[in-house]
């Protein structure tokens, strides 16, 4: 069973009298333990797709299945509980609470999950250590750099041991050096703990470092490309990146760097919504 499965998902928004199709028939299947990026131009539906996967939005039509359960059938309370227990969010603007210390920010989701104080404190300390911020536990967000704040946000996302981390432009507000560190942190989480990580990004370098790249345009999946990793490590699919630089419409799995490096998924299987 897939961790996440989107079947013919459409999302329409009303803008006055006109309707905007944010997602226009998306089919996507994500397995447990994938490290995936979603790319596409502004307005292509990336964030809407992430919101669907993250149970903070429901489709106008179609189905979003999380561990086989249709999220449209869940009420607000169940959706909230699902987000709390199974999903970790990392936002572009970090969204740490300014009145809480770093440690307290990490504790926040555990507090909601009613984890006993000593237990959640120990877990928060462990997570801060994991993101190399133990020495910043008592600091407030405004005393941290952007990169540090994002690492705290990642620690917070991991608090309740989620199955899935959703990162919406996680490096949008940090410099390139910090970007590398954050991406490497996310990759470590994926490889060490087997957590499914989905990153929405504009940064092709980041997209290239993931194992699978889903490209969206006009609310449809334009391409869905998996990298085949070799012993040489996560070698970038340079040709794919080059294509993407020319415009997302150029990206297709078939245009990748060869079957040994890039596997174009069966379009009929994964991009049913495009038709």
């Amino acid at each position: 069973m897939s961790l996440i499965e989107l079947i013919g998902v459409k999302k329409l928004y009303s803008m006055g009298e006109s309707e905007v199709k944010a997602l226009n028939g998306v089919d996507l299947s994500i397995q447990q333990g994938e490290f995936l990026s979603i790319v596409g131009p502004s307005g292509s539906g990336k964030s809407t797709l992430l919101n669907m996967i993250g149970c903070i939005d429901t489709p106008t039509s179609g189905k979003v299945l999380l561990e086989g359960k249709d999220i449209s059938s869940l009420g607000d309370r169940e959706l909230t509980r699902t987000r709390l227990r199974k999903i970790g969010f990392v936002f572009q603007q970090f969204y740490l609470l300014p009145t809480l210390t770093t440690l307290e920010n990490v504790e926040l989701p555990m507090k909601e999950a009613r984890v006993p104080h000593a237990q959640r404190r120990a877990r928060a300390e462990e997570l801060l250590s994991h993101v190399s911020l133990s020495n910043r536990a008592g600091h407030y967000p405004n005393q941290l750099s952007g990169g540090e704040q994002q690492r705290v946000a990642i620690a917070r996302a991991l608090a309740n041991r989620p199955h899935l981390i959703l990162a919406d432009e996680p490096t949008g507000e940090v410099d390139s050096q910090t970007t590398d560190r954050i991406v490497s942190l996310l990759r470590d989480l994926h490889s060490e703990q087997g957590i499914t990580v989905i990153i929405v990004t504009h940064d092709l370098k980041i997209a290239d470092s993931t194992d699978r790249l889903v490209s969206l345009n006009d609310g449809r999946i334009e391409s869905d490309v998996s990298h085949v990793r070799t012993d040489r490590g996560p070698e970038p699919v340079q040709s794919l990146v080059e294509h993407h630089k020319d415009g997302p419409e150029m990206i297709t799995g078939k245009d990748g760097g060869g079957p040994d490096m890039v596997t174009g998924r069966d379009e009929n299987e994964t991009n049913r919504g495009q038709d």
């Binding site: 970790g88 936002f91 969204y95 926040l108 989701p109």
Partner: peptide, 16 residues
């Protein structure tokens, strides 16, 4: 608003 949105997104309930 952003903070509330974040809290709701990470699973903090309406009641809380």
């Amino acid at each position: 608003i952003n903070q509330i949105g974040m809290m709701r997104a990470i699973g903090i309930s309406r009641r809380t």
